[in-house]
């Protein structure tokens, strides 16, 4: 059986619309929250898929950007809810509860940090790259734990979800709509990126960096830009995740989260547009269904992952389309 990749995209998006609508009719708000969680994790993994799937760079530190997005939201909203000022050198602000501004800050700061981490880590490759990105992740994790001003280990609670003009974001389906719209927008941009001249060059660099250099392209610059874009997208997802939970804590920076993002992509299909989305849906479903049965549900996740790595290198999208995933 071979399914067209566009058909998969359409089916997944329709499913992501239909399920919450059904939950709304059946009055099951918790299901809506679950789907929202899947959508946000998918967004974070779509970000990672830029460097992992197209660029071939196994970043084991993408929780950094997820956490930065979360803390960008947390810090801005915290100052707004406590009516205190946030002093940033010359600049001082009273924080904000306005989502678009929070998203922008989350993305800009994530992109900047990704640029700095990329400049250092992209000089290495293979297992060293994995380790150096992991090291950055741990640095941020322990920094967040010791950051007493913003809750340290306990994290920060934001009592009321941030505002989006024209919507009541505390209504689950309305917040879900925001998240899904952002995911669709990013997926659209990702599809353009993947088929663009830049995407072709980055994808070829993954397969042979020497080839790219021999035609006069600079692999470092291509990868650095991919890393920056990737960080910005994952940062945006972090801001939404914090808003979903109305809570930010250092666990958003944890290496387990970085690992989970990689797992999502492998389950769904490395380098495939919908790979991260399908992976996130599977992950959240398992987490909910099996998590209700046993505390050790990760064992089953491990078995699934093992089967995919051994028998279906292209992940679920690969199984459906009959094509292998990108080799990393």
């Amino acid at each position: 059986m071979r399914v067209n990749e566009h058909a998969i995209t359409a089916a997944v998006i329709l499913g992501l619309i239909a399920l919450p609508v059904w939950a709304l009719i059946m009055d099951e708000p918790f299901t809506i929250t679950l789907v929202t969680r899947a959508v946000i994790l998918a967004l974070a993994a779509v970000g990672l898929n830029i460097v992992l799937g197209i660029g071939g760079l196994v970043s084991f530190g993408h929780a950094v950007f997820f956490g930065i997005g979360g803390y960008a939201m947390g810090i801005l909203a915290y100052h707004a809810q406590t009516y205190t000022t946030l002093e940033l050198g010359m600049l001082s602000t009273g924080g904000t509860k306005f989502m678009p501004v929070i998203w922008l800050v989350a993305m800009v700061v994530s992109a900047f940090v990704a640029g700095c981490i990329g400049l250092l880590s992209l000089r290495t490759s293979g297992v060293y790259f994995i380790m150096i990105t992991l090291a950055f992740g741990q640095m941020f994790y322990y920094f967040a734990i010791s950051w007493a001003q913003y809750g340290g280990e306990d994290g920060l609670s934001i009592y009321i979800r941030n505002d989006f003009p024209g919507l009541n974001t505390l209504v689950p389906i309305q917040f879900f709509a925001i998240c899904l719209a952002l995911l669709c927008l990013v997926l659209f941009l990702m599809a353009r990126l993947q088929s663009s001249v830049f995407g072709l060059a980055l994808n070829a660099t993954r397969q042979s960096a020497i080839r790219a250099e021999t035609v006069g392209l600079n692999p470092m610059r291509l990868r650095l830009l991919a890393f920056v874009l990737s960080g910005a997208v994952t940062g945006l997802a972090g801001a939404l995740f914090a808003d979903l939970n109305r809570f930010v804590s250092p666990t958003m920076f944890s290496w387990q989260l970085s690992g989970e993002l990689i797992v999502l992509i492998i389950i769904g299909g490395v380098g495939r547009l919908m790979g991260p989305v399908i992976g996130a849906c599977v992950f959240v479903t398992l987490e909910h269904v099996l998590g209700g049965l046993t505390e050790f549900w990760h064992i089953y996740l491990g078995v699934i992952l093992l089967c995919i790595v051994l028998f279906a290198r292209g992940g679920i999208v690969g199984l459906l389309t009959g094509k292998e995933g990108a080799h990393v």
Binding site: V197, F198, L200, A201, A212, V215, G216
Partner: peptide
């Protein structure tokens, strides 16, 4: 890829 390298403009993100 060769043509892209020769043209020297790899920073194009929109057009396929």
């Amino acid at each position: 890829l060769g043509a892209i390298g020769a043209a020297g403009n790899v920073w194009r993100f929109w057009k396929p």
